[in-house]
Design a protein around this nucleic acid. Structure first.
Lengths: 138, 138
DNA sequence: TTGGTAAATGGGATATTGTTTCATTTAATA
DNA sequence: TATTAAATGAAACAATATCCCATTTACCAA
């Protein structure tokens, strides 16, 4: 596992990273906890939070603070955008070109030092679209 | 106050909206609660949350679910972007042109029905820049 | 202008999400 | 393999948000 100096390679960390890598669903900390607990039933929720934060800080994974109240995590660290279903809260990737130039534009328009950006689309996922169609039929 | 049918014009609602309109700082629900309590000391926190959500749902105000764990609210409903200071959490407006065309691009690239988007820049606010400069001097 | 009525409130309980503490365990390494 | 600091598990705690329900209040019809 890629890591920072003084960061030990524990079983817990390995398995958290492995499980996160298996899914594309941008799980919350609690969802990761559930996934990991199937393999390490005695792991603590604190350990999961601690490690997700640590790995996000060191750039091994991505922390998403998107719509909804919960943080979500993503094993794909390359810059990319997301879409969030307004109805069920599901988060998926949006595979379009990253708009690097808007950082410059934003920097000019503000007194912040701009370090990056994230685009979050909102929409309706296929599943919710289906359900809505079904409901409106009667 | 602009409102939905069956939505009563209560003192609490008016004052919440007035206080939110006074600031450009995108306050959290708790910050709004503090502001409003100066004029209505007996208002409940639940009332503040309830009304902010209600007003956001009806489009009177904007609910921001940006970085950080808390929801933030904005009296300006016209589409615009935000920047969040990675160091202190402050949120400000970024006054650049809204990229309407990327909704189409995103819709083509996914199986969601795209309804909108929001861009959140991350950066360092002037205040934190100053502080960092001061710290690194000795 | 009042009286009826459903919406809204206050305040506390509860739920949800995330963080901290500390005694114990464990990975790294000398 | 003994040492030691980092990491863990478990539970307490903190922060944020929602719910419940008896009481109050805005609105409307007469």
């Amino acid at each position: 596992m890629e890591q920072l100096p003084n960061m030990r390679l524990t079983t817990q960390r390995q398995i958290i990273l492995e499980e996160l890598g298996k899914v594309t669903s941008h799980p919350t900390a609690n969802e990761v906890y559930d996934m990991v607990r199937k393999r390490l039933p005695r792991i603590g929720l604190g350990t999961v939070y601690r490690n997700l934060e640590l790995m996000a800080d060191s750039g091994i994974i991505l922390k998403l603070e998107v719509g909804g109240t919960q943080k979500r995590f993503d094993a794909t660290v390359a810059p990319h955008y997301h879409v969030r279903c307004t109805f069920c809260g599901k988060v998926d990737d949006i595979d379009i070109e990253v708009q690097n130039k808007i950082n410059q534009i934003a920097e000019t328009a503000s007194d912040y030092m701009i370090l990056g950006h994230h685009i979050e689309f909102s929409g309706m996922c296929p599943r919710c679209s289906e359900e809505k169609k079904a409901t409106s039929l009667h």
